[in-house]
């Protein structure tokens, strides 16, 4: 095995990990606050990718401005979605789970009618190849997307750890009843947390839309990966999901390169099963 190959696998693993991290962080945030599994998370990923596609390709807006539109539109969609779909059944775990599956199927079905059936694609505005030391080549687009993913995660850490709304989110996550008694308006905080979670999913879709193809089912595979990550990292733990994202990214890269794509998938799932046998709550999850 050459040094170049090892460095390339490390770089690919890091890039994949960054992308996975962005997909999983919103899902784990929502679970942490609401203790609900949002099966429609992939739908928001897809809608973010579609919005970016139409804003860039059809409306002719700059790509980065299209991403900015996501930041304006999806918090509103999130608040509405939480208010109409989630809040009435928030305390009924199974009903919440089923209703998000319903939303997933419904939106995907509408997506085929609205967006058409032929897959779409976007090109990143900067098409430069970077030749790194060790003979490794990396596209500027992937590097920028990695950097943006890291920035977004740092932003999430800042919101959750340093702001008043973040403290309220953590209070609701840890002790919902005590938080209410302390005067925290839990409905409002949950709605904001949910809006933040799905905006992250949409932003991930927007960013990744230049790397992969876009269709109404674009969110399905990322959602599956995100579920693996949040279970591996520990449900509700953002730090756990960041760690799990990079573990999965490196497994996909090293496994897929050294042993072939099938082995990459097998190794990923095998590791998840092993970790869950010895630590059922995941890497940083609470029992």
């Amino acid at each position: 095995m050459t040094r170049q190959l090892i460095v390339q696998m490390v770089v690919t693993g890091f890039v994949l990990g960054s992308i996975y991290m962005l997909m999983a962080s919103g899902l784990t945030l929502i679970y942490g606050i609401m203790h609900q599994v949002n099966m429609a998370h992939g739908v928001f990923f897809m809608l973010g990718a579609m919005l970016t596609y139409y804003a860039t390709k059809e409306a002719g807006l700059p790509y980065f401005f299209s991403l900015f539109i996501i930041l304006l539109v999806f918090p509103l969609i999130g608040v509405l979605f939480e208010r109409i779909i989630f809040r009435p059944i928030r305390h009924l775990w199974l009903a919440g789970y089923m209703s998000t599956i319903g939303v997933w199927i419904l939106v995907e079905g509408i997506g085929w009618q609205v967006f058409g059936t032929v897959e779409k694609g976007l090109q990143f505005p900067i098409q430069t190849l970077l030749h790194l030391p060790g003979g490794v080549t990396l596209s500027a687009s992937k590097l920028i997307i990695c950097a943006l993913s890291l920035l977004i995660i740092l932003g999430i850490y800042w919101i959750v750890g340093r702001t008043a709304i973040g403290r309220q989110m953590r209070a609701i996550e840890q002790q919902p009843k005590a938080a209410k008694l302390m005067g925290i308006h839990s409905d409002r905080v949950v709605a904001l947390g949910f809006a933040l979670g799905i905006t992250l999913a949409a932003l991930a879709g927007g960013l990744v839309s230049t790397l992969y193809s876009i269709s109404p089912t674009s969110g399905d595979t990322p959602m599956l990966k995100a579920f693996i990550i949040i279970i591996l990292g520990g449900l509700g733990s953002i730090t756990g999901s960041v760690i799990a994202s990079f573990i999965l990214g490196f497994i996909d890269s090293f496994g897929g390169t050294l042993f072939g794509p099938q082995a990459g998938h097998f190794l990923g799932f095998a590791l998840v099963i092993l970790i869950l046998i010895f630590k059922p709550a995941g890497i940083l999850g609470h029992e």
Binding site: M9, T12, T221, D252, G255, T257, G260, P261, G264
Partner: peptide, 20 residues
């Protein structure tokens, strides 16, 4: 001679394997 699933979106690992 490599094979990947028809719904693959990220070919980077298998391409790295091939490009060697």
């Amino acid at each position: 001679q490599e094979f990947v699933a028809i719904d693959t979106s990220d070919f980077t690992p298998v391409l790295t394997r091939i490009l060697v």
